[in-house]
Design a protein around this nucleic acid. Structure first.
Lengths: 208, 208
DNA sequence: ACCTGAACACCGTTCAAGT
DNA sequence: ACCTGAACACCGTTCAAGT
């Protein structure tokens, strides 16, 4: 018993997160357990708690890695600096593409809920903010005359909307209207929202 | 032991679902368990399986009741037949209102995932379809010249978008940009999307 | 027919004990 | 210092046994 030192602390963290990702990819977040993780890496339950505070901590760290991967995809989508309207479309497509290819890991980001009162670490929020900044940046290029406040609001509305299409699209429960692909619905949202944002001086509520 | 007959099958179902709703309202879907439900209603574990196939079945039935409540709220929101643009806004506000006041039960609808391969019963899908029809109907009134296909697509895009704003708004993880309320972001989405839908003959992608 | 409670196979987390 | 494995308090589900 005890003191094997097969792996450094950091190595242990790495293989545990890898195992967790594989388990989630195979069976979804609900299929993840501490005992499955340690069995997969050849350790016993207790040792997990040397590296992670608890299962929630492990999941948050796993989700941070998923955010990193997602962020990379978004970054390459706008790497060749297309015009802003196309860039926004490319960002949306990259988001959908990631959700499509990495569905369980992507879902885990939103499925996991910390116990009441606990919040996600700053590093997590920063990654989310970084991705969000990509959208905001393109929107600012698209609408140079709008105030920063307007841009922030619009970016949030647009990105939340795209996320909504994705999340409902993947929820077979909500597969209410057949036929339409996630990409089609997203295009509708993008087309009309951006047209409205740029085309009219005043929002609907101030007309009539 | 055995044969108490304190309650009929239907009564047992009712008090079990009620207990489940109270548990979810208090501690969220993760705080729900078969054993807590039966303890709360004064029965033992086994008896739950006389009325529900398993815990997933109980949750689905509980979520159907939540959909009923939500549907009622949406219906009253358009009961006095306001003009379509206002009706759509009222539907969105009713949705947000329900999410705000019944957060854990509302969240449970989306949080719960059936095991791989299983699907939700038809009665569930029908309720979702019914709510969705409310939006579609108003959108059809707003844009009489659009094809039914266009309307379906637009309704889906718009409603998914509003849902996205809600779901990210309630996720403190994603509270990336401070200051903006869910209602504000929804208004931005509605204003610009509807303006774009009605104001321009061609979507952005077909311009320039 | 209804209901119990023991049984089984799982959980997350802790911690004394071993090297 | 690292790691084990038993222990504890939970799970969901089944089913023989009782009335």
């Amino acid at each position: 018993m005890g003191r094997r030192n097969d792996h450094t602390r950091e190595e242990l963290r790495e293989i545990a997160l890898q195992a967790a990702e594989e388990l989630v990819a195979a069976d979804g977040l609900d299929g993840l357990s501490t005992r499955k993780v340690v069995t997969r890496i050849g350790y016993t339950v207790g040792s997990l708690y040397m590296v992670f505070r608890n299962l929630d901590d492990l999941i948050v760290q796993m989700n941070e890695r998923t955010l990193d991967d997602l962020g990379k995809q978004l970054t390459v989508a706008v790497a060749d600096q297309p015009p802003p309207a196309q860039a926004i479309r490319a960002l949306a497509q990259a988001y959908i593409g990631f959700a499509l290819t990495e569905t369980p890991r992507w879902l885990a980001i939103y499925q996991h809920r910390l116990p009441e009162g606990q919040t996600v670490p700053d590093s997590f929020s920063e990654k989310v903010a970084g991705m969000f900044a990509l959208v905001q940046q393109q929107l600012a290029l698209l609408c140079p005359c709008r105030s920063p406040d307007d841009i922030t609001l619009a970016a949030r509305a647009l990105w939340s909307g795209i996320h909504g299409v994705c999340i409902l699209g993947f929820d077979q429960k909500l597969e209410f209207v057949g036929g339409r692909s996630i990409a089609e619905v997203t295009d509708s949202l993008l087309d009309h929202y951006l047209a409205g944002l740029m085309g009219l001086g005043y929002p609907l509520s101030q007309q009539a």
